[in-house]
Structure formats: C-alpha cells, structure tokens
C-alpha cells in the first residue's frame, strides 16, 4: 500500500509539470494582453509606454524564458504579483480559495443527507412511485441550467419569502452565524445538483449490492431484511458514493464560477474568470495551477480511500 501511495505521488510530478505548461501556454496564447485590458474602453497606450509596460511585466521575453522564470519562482513559492491590483498573487489566492472550498464542501455536505436516504429508498422500493419521484426529481436537478436555478432560488427564498439574504459573503471566521445565512442559498444551488447526482449514484450502487451473493446468503441465514440493508448493503453501496463526492468536490473548485458570479461570492472561480477577462496572467496561471494541484491531490486521496474501503481492488 505504502509503495503504491508513494508511487502515485511520484506520478503526480509529471502531471503537475504538464499542467503548468498547459496553463502557461493557454494563458499566453490568449488574444491581447493586460495592457490592452487595462487601457479599458478608451485611451490608447502609445508604443513606448506599451514597450515599457511589457518590459515591466516581463512580456517582452521569449515565451520559454518567461515560462522558466515563472516556474522557477513558483518552485520557490513565489507566484508573482497581479498585473492589475499589483498585490501578491498568493495573497489573493489565500483570500479566494477558502471561500470556494467553503461553498463547495458545504454544498456537497448539504446534498448527502438528502441524497443518500433518497437514493436508498428509491433502490429498495424500486419501480414504485417513490422510486419514480426520486428519479424524476434528480433528473430535473441535473437538467436545469445552473444560473437559471440560482436566480429562481433568489427570487423565491430571498425576494418572495424573505428568508435569506440574496447574495454576498461573510467569512465564517468573522461571524459564523451570519456567514451561514449568506452561505445557504449558493450552497443550496450547488447542493441541489449534487443531490441529484448522488441520489442517482446511491440508487444504482444500492441496486448493485442488493443483487450480490452475500445478500442472498444473509437472507438464507434468516437475517432481517432491515439489518441486511443498513448493516451491509448500504455500507458497501456508499463506497462509490463517498469517493465520487470527493471527486465532485475537486471538480467544483473551478465549477462554481457561475454561482459565484450570481451570488457575489468572492471565490477562486470568479477570480480566475475575471483574470481571464483582464488577461491578468499571473493570477490565471497561479489560480489554475493551485486548483489543479488540489484536484490531483483530491483524486489521489479518493483513490487511496477507495482502495482502503474496497480491498478487492488490486494495487496494480
């Protein structure tokens, strides 16, 4: 196991290297640069000023030199400065990534207590109205465009019912109670979709388990149905559910752009999106790289967890 884990960690190194090359390549291939975007709607920069700025930002160097300089600094933990705010990128990332993680974790967390029982019940009462209702609602959950659902949520819960604030962000470290009230709506918007996925997943893995031999064996031994389901089947069925939720979490790190934009949530997705618009290269590069490393790390952890929970899987 240990060898396997170490091996997997070593494998991450080339992946992260490739990721860094890819993101650097993408970013520098983007049309236009920060000088254009800072010029804004008006006011052209004359060529000398442009040249001076390019020199200042290091944009005048050949691309591989720029990459080498950047990568060298990143290895020393220096992500450079935002070309727009001129503040250290690491400071910006440290402000934004926790906000997104907070949202994503709570969103997924909210979905589990709804989705797992729903999926289980749907599987147990297969082909009954309960099952159909669960299936249809979860299919609707994954069929609605996110931004539309979010706006409908705001109109319902904030405007008409007046239960929750419509948008905004308060750090949980400043005021946990208040922070949670702001969190509910965006987390709900994430949770709804996640719940839909998880319900479907739980249902199908439950069905898988129910038909396994050990269930028949247990039945023939006269164990009560309830005990079989809750003690054995559900536990096994939850393995893929839990692991896939972990992977979902990784995916959500860059997948909440739309919700962050609607709910004025100062997360990393919104930050990277805005940085792309502004061509703020250091922020895009560092943001994607850090998120990418988080993604591969989560994937690795999930993998290890999966093997740990499910020893049948070989350590090839």
């Amino acid at each position: 196991m240990l060898v396997y884990v170490l091996n997997r960690i070593l494998q991450l190194i080339p992946v992260v290297f490739v990721l860094s090359v890819l993101v650097f390549g993408f970013v520098h291939a983007l049309p236009g640069d920060v000088i254009d975007s800072l010029a804004g709607d008006e006011a052209a920069e004359d060529p000398e000023v442009r040249a001076a700025l390019e020199k200042e930002f290091g944009l005048d160097q050949p691309i591989y030199v720029q990459y080498a300089v950047w990568a060298g600094k990143v290895l020393q933990g220096d992500f450079g400065k935002s070309l727009v705010t001129r503040r250290p990128v690491s400071v910006e990332l440290l402000e934004r990534i926790p906000a997104t993680v907070y949202l994503a974790v709570v969103g997924i967390g909210l979905s589990m207590p709804i989705a797992v029982p729903l999926g289980t019940i749907a599987a147990i009462r297969r082909n009954t109205p309960t099952d159909y209702a669960a299936q249809i609602s979860s299919l609707i959950g994954i069929s609605i465009p996110e931004f539309w659902f979010a706006i409908l949520c705001i109109m319902l819960f904030s405007l008409h019912l007046g239960w929750l604030p419509s948008s905004g962000y308060v750090s949980p470290l400043d005021d946990l109670g208040l922070s949670l009230t702001y969190l509910v709506l965006p987390a709900l918007a994430i949770g709804f979709r996640q719940a839909a996925y998880t319900t479907r997943l739980t249902r199908s893995s439950m069905l898988d388990e129910v038909h396994k031999e050990y269930v028949d064996t247990a039945r023939s031994l006269g164990l009560p149905e309830r005990k079989i389901i809750y003690k054995y089947t559900l536990r096994n069925a939850l393995i893929p559910t839990v692991t896939i939720s972990g992977l979902q979490l990784a995916n959500l790190l860059g997948g909440t752009v739309v919700l962050e934009s609607i709910f004025s949530w100062p997360g990393i997705g919104l930050t990277i999106y805005q940085a792309i618009q502004l061509r703020d290269f250091p922020v895009i590069q560092a943001g994607v790289l850090v998120l990418g490393v988080m993604v591969v790390t989560i994937n690795l952890l999930v993998d290890i967890l999966y093997r740990f929970l499910n020893p049948r899987v070989g350590l090839s």
Binding site: I151, I154, M155, S158, L159, P165, S166, S167, G168, S261, I262, F263, S264
Partner: peptide
C-alpha cells in the same frame, strides 16, 4: 454584478 440580484438586495 447581477442586476436582478442588486435590486433584490
């Protein structure tokens, strides 16, 4: 950013 959200707020 969203006009609707601002007005709702």
């Amino acid at each position: 950013r969203e006009d609707q959200v601002r007005l709702t707020a």
